[in-house]
Simulated assay, not measured.
Amino acid sequence: MQLNFACTQCGRCCQGHRVPLSVHEAMAWLRRGGDVHLLCDAVVWPAEPPAGDALAAYRRERSFAAASAAMAVRVGVILAASFPGRCPNLMDDQRCAIYAERPLVCRIYPASINPFEPLGTESKACPPEAWDARGPAFVRAGRLVDEATHALIDQARHLAMQEIPAKQRLCDALGIRVAAMANEGFAVHRPPRAALLAALEASCAAMATQADPVVPVPALPGDWCLLSARAATLEILAEIDAYALDACQAGQLGVEYLDLQPPDGAAG
């Protein structure tokens, strides 16, 4: 695969998205008056996977150990800047008002932090002219060629691993114990700005001083509730003695269910 790319400043990537943030980026976003939500998902983890399972290793380094009733799981948490339409930092002339301090994900786009996401145009918001063959080289032989972007991706991946203890503390401080099943959806938590900022600051302070070390979550018992909109998934979770509920009950738990797949029986 060969791709060329040049940003057209169309602003499409700055509209209607949840933007993943690092812990410090999330604090800065909140201080500017923006909204940050926590997107939680989980995967059952009855035993450590084989050493050569790259996808499992990637999941492991970006999650923390927990349990759902009798089943060991790993929980992933994404801090996401959320806005219903235009990014609050997108100005009328389509320039970014915080360009020098914009999040890492924005700097990396249209590349991805996820090494398992194909480097293609299908999932990107950019218009066709952004991929004009006369633009700068972007992908050659299926590999991202821009070294500056490579460095930013490495930085983002390092932060994602480094911040896991802070995210675990954050869930404890905010009483968050609901996650969707990974690859199916996310449980979206919307804590008040002030409460979230205070919890983030406390988590960062604990990490900086190496105080309050994270105690490994015991395998049994566990209080994480797993959400799924799939009847087959719920049946499996019941068989393995996990604490699971249908996603339609998310509102009763004070969370939103963000579905990543078509419902059971739906086409496509």
Rank of each mutant, 00 (worst) to 15 (best):
R12K: 07
C13I: 03
C14I: 01
Q15A: 13
G16F: 02
H17E: 09
H17L: 11
V19E: 07
S22G: 04
H24I: 01
A26L: 02
A28M: 04
W29Y: 06
W29H: 05
W29Q: 10
L30F: 04
R31T: 04
R32C: 02
G34D: 11
G34H: 09
D41S: 15
D41Q: 12
V44P: 03
A47N: 12
A51G: 13
G52A: 01
G52S: 01
R59P: 01
A66Y: 00
A66G: 03
A66M: 02
S68K: 00
A69P: 00
A70D: 00
A80M: 03
A81E: 11
P84R: 08
C87M: 10
N89L: 07
Q94S: 06
A97I: 02
Y99C: 11
A100F: 01
E101P: 05
P103H: 13
L104R: 08
P110Y: 07
I113E: 00
P115H: 04
G120T: 13
T121H: 13
K124Q: 13
A125V: 10
C126Q: 04
P128R: 01
R134Y: 00
P136D: 08
V139I: 05
A141W: 05
A141M: 03
E147G: 03
E147W: 06
T149E: 08
I153F: 12
I153M: 14
D154V: 13
M161V: 15
Q162Y: 07
E163K: 06
L174S: 09
L174K: 09
L174Q: 08
M181N: 08
N183T: 12
E184D: 09
H189M: 00
P191K: 10
A194E: 15
A198M: 08
A199D: 05
S203F: 06
C204A: 14
T209K: 12
P221T: 13
L227Q: 11
S228P: 15
A229H: 14
R230Q: 15
A232F: 03
T233W: 08
E235W: 14
I236V: 12
L237Q: 10
L237W: 12
D241A: 03
A247H: 08
A247K: 10
A250G: 02
G251W: 15
G254V: 01
D259H: 14
Q261Y: 03
